[in-house]
Every structure is written in structure tokens, then in C-alpha cells.
């Protein structure tokens, strides 16, 4: 019965997609995620409803262990929710087969990670062109586009360097170029500045914002870097696997630097009471 209803919903939703009237590029409905670790069950997400508009810059903030990385994985189709649904452009991710999921990861979404996750044996250029290889793009085009992307992130002269020969900030730039390889509509960033110093982090945030404004890429970033707040259209605060509050930019600019801002910093330093959650 429920299955039938859901399929109806999906079909309606897809009809909408075809008319190109979708406002929300990501919709999460009642997301739950339970990790079973031995005999202990850990609820990483406890019912998340979240809609993200096309072209929006959204930061998901919260202390470590709050479930933001788990939410990141669900939205990116990297893990399956225990309960609930993620729609990307009104397509229910749970309905996708292996090819469609790979297609989504390859062409629709670009991923950026805290630990950069470049392939260590490949040069910067090879790292950037790898997603294009999977997308079946011919070699000449791959190399041209790869160099173009490296130029865009300011690393054209480092194309032949291995990740180990690049600084953290440079590696993250390569990772951003790689995330853009197949011209994704959404870029998902999991703590993109987490391993970077203040200045480099700022540069990465500016680069993401630039992409958001110039290419109207939707940016969704899980972070606990308060520098992100300035550039975000909306900030989603997560606590204990639930959305604590969602704040719009206009409201945010008033709050940052005032009482609320200090409260946030405190929240940041909360001892890891939620450390039963696996850090992703």
C-alpha cells in the first residue's frame, strides 16, 4: 500500500521534472539513519526534513557527531538512509539502480572532502580528468577541460604534480577542480576547510562562493567552520540528528558577531558527548 503511494508520488514528481518547474533540487523527507555497532544502535539522524533550492549556498552546521556528515552522505547517495527519502531533482535515490547512481555521482554531484581524497598515484591533471574518464569523454577533450579547470582554481602550472607534492590548500583546489569535472549541478562539500589553516580555508570558501555565483552551482557544505556563515544563503543547524533551526542570510548577518555568534562558538567547543557517532 505504502509502496503504491510512494510510486505515485515519484511519478507525479517526475512529471514535474519534465516540465522544468522544480524549485528544489534536493528534498529530504523524514530521514533516519541508524548505525548498528555490535549490540549498540546509534541514531545518527532522527527525522530530517530539508529542502534546498537550485543555486542556493547552504551550510549544514553542528558540533562533531551531530549527524551532519551522515546527512551529507545521504544527500550525496553515498549511503542509504534507514528510513525516509532523498529526492534529487525529484528523483527518489532509493529507486536508482547501480548505473543511475553512478551517473548521479559522476555528472550530477561533485564531492569535496575534508581529507581531499585525491588518488595519491595520479597527478593533479589525472585526478581532475578521472571523472571524465568514467563519463566516457574522449581523451583530448578530457585534457583540455582538465587544464581549464586547473587554471580556474589557479593551479595550471602544477598539473604534473602528485598530491603529496602539493600543499593542503592546493590539494583541496585540485579536489574542487575534480568535483567540477563533469559540470555538476550540485557540489557537496564535507568539512572542506577542516584540514586547512585560516587563510587557506578562507580562499577555499571564496572559491566555492565564486562557483556558486558564477556557475549557479548549488553548494551544500557540512561544516563547523564559522567563516562559512558569511557566504551562505542559509544555515541549517543540526543537533543530535535533528534540525535545530534554519536561518536565512538576512537574519544571519544580524546575528553573527552578536550574542548568537558567541553561543555558536560555545556550541563548537562542546565536549564530544556525541562521540558514539562514527566520524565520517
Amino acid at each position: 500500500m505504502a509502496e503504491q503511494e510512494r510510486s505515485d508520488e515519484t511519478r507525479q514528481a517526475q512529471a514535474k521534472t519534465n516540465e522544468q518547474v522544480v524549485e528544489f533540487t534536493v528534498r529530504c523527507r523524514n530521514l533516519h539513519k541508524v548505525y548498528v555497532m555490535g549490540k549498540v544502535k546509534v541514531w545518527a539522524l532522527r527525522g530530517i526534513d530539508l529542502d534546498i533550492r537550485r543555486g542556493e549556498y547552504v551550510s549544514i552546521m553542528g558540533p562533531s557527531g551531530s549527524g551532519k556528515s551522515t546527512l551529507f552522505n545521504m544527500i550525496g547517495g553515498l549511503d542509504k538512509p534507514t528510513e525516509g527519502t532523498v529526492f534529487i531533482d525529484e528523483v527518489d535515490l532509493a529507486q536508482l539502480d547501480a548505473y543511475e547512481l553512478a551517473w548521479l555521482r559522476c555528472r550530477k554531484i561533485g564531492y569535496i572532502f575534508q581529507t581531499f581524497n585525491l588518488i595519491p598515484v595520479m597527478t593533479a591533471l589525472e585526478n581532475v580528468t578521472l571523472p571524465m574518464t568514467f563519463a566516457g569523454i574522449p581523451e583530448d577533450e578530457r585534457l583540455d577541460r582538465g587544464m581549464e579547470l586547473l587554471k580556474r582554481v589557479g593551479l595550471a602550472d602544477r598539473w604534473n604534480h602528485k598530491p603529496a607534492e602539493l600543499s593542503g590548500g592546493q590539494q583541496q583546489r585540485v579536489a574542487i577542480a575534480r568535483a567540477l569535472a563533469n559540470d555538476p549541478a550540485i557540489v557537496l562539500a564535507d568539512e572542506p576547510t577542516g584540514n586547512l589553516d585560516l587563510r587557506t580555508g578562507r580562499e577555499i570558501i571564496d572559491l566555492l562562493k565564486e562557483l556558486n555565483e558564477e556557475n549557479s552551482v548549488t553548494i551544500i557544505s557540512a561544516t563547523h567552520d564559522l567563516k562559512m556563515i558569511d557566504v551562505s544563503d542559509r544555515v541549517v543547524w543540526i543537533r543530535d540528528g535533528k534540525i535545530a533551526r534554519i536561518e536565512d542570510r538576512s537574519k544571519l548577518q544580524l546575528q553573527v558577531g552578536m550574542v548568537e555568534g558567541e553561543e555558536l562558538l560555545e556550541e563548537e567547543e562542546t565536549p564530544p558527548e556525541e562521540s558514539e557517532m562514527p566520524e565520517v
Binding site: 521534472t17 534529487i88 543511475e100 551517473w103 568514467f134 566516457g136
Partner: peptide, 17 residues
């Protein structure tokens, strides 16, 4: 059925190694 505006066959053809 169309997914992300493409048919399943088109999607299959776009993921290759």
C-alpha cells in the same frame, strides 16, 4: 521512464570504462 531527463539506456551509455 525518464530519470534526470534521460532514459535508462542513455544513462547506461554515459557511464563507461
Amino acid at each position: 521512464e525518464r530519470i534526470f531527463g534521460l532514459t535508462r539506456e542513455e544513462i547506461k551509455r554515459q557511464i563507461i570504462l
